[in-house]
Write a protein that binds this DNA or RNA. Structure first.
Length: 270
DNA sequence: AACGGTTCCAACCGCCCGCTA
DNA sequence: ATAGCGGGCGGTTGGAACCGT
């Protein structure tokens, strides 16, 4: 079908934003909130395309943005999430508070790609550059990974089932769960279910129930990497894997799969 | 200081998807 | 069922900043 242009190109500014334009955009959004980007430029007195305003706000002006260098932990998380999700930058950004999809995309292309190449890893497949035995390598996974893979398969079946019921496509913006089975077995699949703050609250409640006291989660656990080597608190994984919520058999209700329809779109935080 | 090559990232572009009439 | 619209996404680009000679 034909499409009208998103804005009147002839009368819009392009290129770098001026301080005055930034101020106008910030003032307008503070007063009226986000949304209706097409009409925003006119209402705010900006000679900009609505899309351009949205990008400027989301990628640069938003007050909750975290500026500055990426930490080593963020690096590793991005690599793990990329191995799971591929170039779904918005989904990856959803797991990194204060980071934007554009920022992560740029960082990936400029730093992490090179970092992985220097490690001898193909950035697109996350496998060794000269790897010809990945299947064999996968067969050597430990028991924990096997459990996770089994669980991932369960999730995938559930998703497929739901998608079939609803007549939905299994690709497109949806997360491809089977990738997890092969590439990133230690990444908590809960990341596909709920927003981070909710997850953190749930984990905290779980800890309090288990220990009878309030304890803080380490950075890795707060990001859903309970099985990661980066986990410094070392308690959530033990609770989840050995306690109230087994990841095998019928015990994966901690993800809400028994009681709720899984919704890929809940990944999208923005 | 001047120059050329490289890196980095803000911004743009075109396409896709969901919603609505 | 279909067309149109608005919003969002991933890929790409242009130019500023940086670096080495």
């Amino acid at each position: 079908m034909g499409r009208s242009p998103c804005c009147e190109k002839a009368h819009t500014n392009k290129g770098a934003w001026t301080k005055e334009e930034d101020d106008r955009l910030i003032a307008y959004i503070r007063a009226h909130g986000e949304g209706c980007w097409r009409s925003l430029p006119k209402a705010a007195g900006l000679l900009r395309c609505g899309k351009s305003c949205r990008l400027r706000w989301i990628n640069y002006l938003r007050p909750d943005l975290k500026r500055g260098n990426f930490t080593e932990e963020e690096d590793e998380l991005i690599i793990k999430l990329h191995s799971l999700l591929g170039n779904k930058w918005s989904l990856i950004a959803g797991r990194l508070p204060g980071r934007t999809d554009n920022e992560i995309k740029n960082y990936w292309n400029t730093h992490i790609r090179r970092k992985l190449l220097s490690r001898g890893i193909d950035p697109s497949t996350h496998r060794p550059l000269n790897d010809t035995n990945s299947a064999q390598i996968n067969n050597n996974n430990n028991n924990q990974e096997a459990t996770t893979i089994s669980f991932a398969s369960s999730v995938k079946q559930e998703l497929d089932s739901n998608n079939q019921k609803e007549g939905k496509r299994s690709s497109g913006s949806g997360v491809v769960v089977e990738v997890t089975e092969e590439r990133c077995p230690d990444l908590n699949l809960e990341l596909t279910i709920s927003p981070p703050h909710q997850e953190a609250e749930d984990n905290q409640a779980l800890l309090m129930k288990h220990n009878g006291e309030r304890r803080s989660l380490c950075f890795a656990c707060s990001l859903g990497l309970q099985n990661s080597k980066d986990c410094s608190c070392g308690i959530v994984g033990s609770v989840i894997n050995g306690g109230t919520s087994s990841s095998s058999g019928s015990g994966y209700d901690f993800l809400g799969l028994k009681s709720a329809v899984l919704d890929y779109r809940s990944l999208e935080m923005k």
